[in-house]
Write a protein that binds this DNA or RNA. Structure first.
Lengths: 209, 209
DNA sequence: TAGATTGTTAATCGATTAACAATC
DNA sequence: TAGATTGTTAATCGATTAACAATC
């Protein structure tokens, strides 16, 4: 893996390619060209080849890529050759929905537990997943080697939750709270801001008229 | 609004600034500098000023920006000086959670109805919001002047849903299904891919060791 | 006037696209 | 060999950053 400085956009696309390749695998397609990958994901073939070139040579000139092989390379690049344990903080509507989200399971993300501070919610089960008191998160994360935490709490709690889970040893945070959060340098964070996405739509709709 | 070609990244940031400014308003802060906005959203002050400069001059040299005024300008730029009617297709866990999501309501997005093809779900209510049969979506969208549709169905249904809602007159789609969708040119689409976000985290975690 | 902060320009940086030699 | 498609380089395009004159 000759990682020099990989654009984040490349990583996003690799993840999309991977899902598309998985689909092809299921349909028993064995070989595909960069042109056809591009078609499948609404991209350009030059970009597909460039994205892959950051990591090696996975194709065969004149032929294309072996679907299964290429996907397995990409999965490895993304760190998905192993399962990842996840906890979710916030057992509200969003947190509960995420705990059941099939798209996580399919890609090897296992939600082991949810955490909340509401006595009403603690002890309940959402599907297979139990809601624990937030006070137990540190122990839980340590015992279960959890590296990823999803934050689905109201915005004004989010920074406090970060402090707790970072202390517990979490290395990556997926944040759904609409607020900028500070994390130590060794912790990865990504914000999924649902309203922002809506607002890009309204902006563009307003432009086009 | 001197829109020439605005980077999408700028729109995303405007949306984030806006939410931060709202917070300041609530705390009765009346004036703020680009440096302090940047601090509040983990950005740079040059970028804040550049982003705003695409749309006009909203500040006062030597002083800064009036919080309330600036936010009102940004809201207008984003098309948020009015409410938007929304329907959600897919009344599963994710769709249901989104229908209750406070972050949408706060920004003027009103979810008027949910649609599904599962007889089990049709007729149920999630909070205030009723689940209707998908067959009624066209009529519903027309009667209620719905412009935005959220797609929260399994990936293999998504393209079919697009056809239906575009036909019904929807102008913008927020897609949670992990699949590339084709839409006519006059329809805006944005994909929120939850697994992709997780995978950027795992990629980065693997890089850092 | 002195200090602060904007709006804007120019320089830098980075990502995408196009083109093509290599090669199956 | 002819046709196809990769991997890679160079050219283009676009976004970010730095710097500073304008001005409150």
């Amino acid at each position: 893996m000759k990682s020099h400085k990989i654009p984040e956009a490349t990583i996003i696309r690799l993840s999309v390619y991977s899902r598309y390749l998985k689909q092809l695998e299921i349909n028993n397609i064995t070989t595909i060209s960069s042109v056809d990958i591009a078609r499948g994901v609404n991209g350009s073939s030059a970009q597909v080849r460039k994205d892959l070139a950051y990591f090696g040579e996975f194709g065969m000139r004149g032929v294309g890529y072996n679907v299964k092989e290429l996907n397995s390379h990409i999965m490895k690049i993304l760190g998905l050759n192993t399962n990842w344990n996840v906890v979710i903080v916030g057992a509200g509507n969003l947190g509960s929905a995420l705990s059941q989200y099939k798209g996580f399971q399919e890609r090897g993300f296992r939600v082991l537990g949810m955490f909340d501070n509401d006595p009403e919610k603690i002890g309940r089960r959402i599907g297979e997943i139990e809601v624990y008191p937030i006070s137990q998160i540190k122990e839980f994360v340590e015992i279960n080697t959890v590296r990823i935490c999803v934050i689905a709490v109201p915005a004004h709690y989010a920074q406090e939750v970060v402090a707790g889970v970072v202390d517990a040893g979490v290395k990556a945070i997926l944040n759904f709270a609409p607020r900028a959060l500070s994390v130590p340098e060794h912790v990865e964070i990504r914000n999924v801001d649902l309203a922002v996405n809506m607002e890009i739509l309204t902006f563009n709709m307003c432009l086009n008229k």
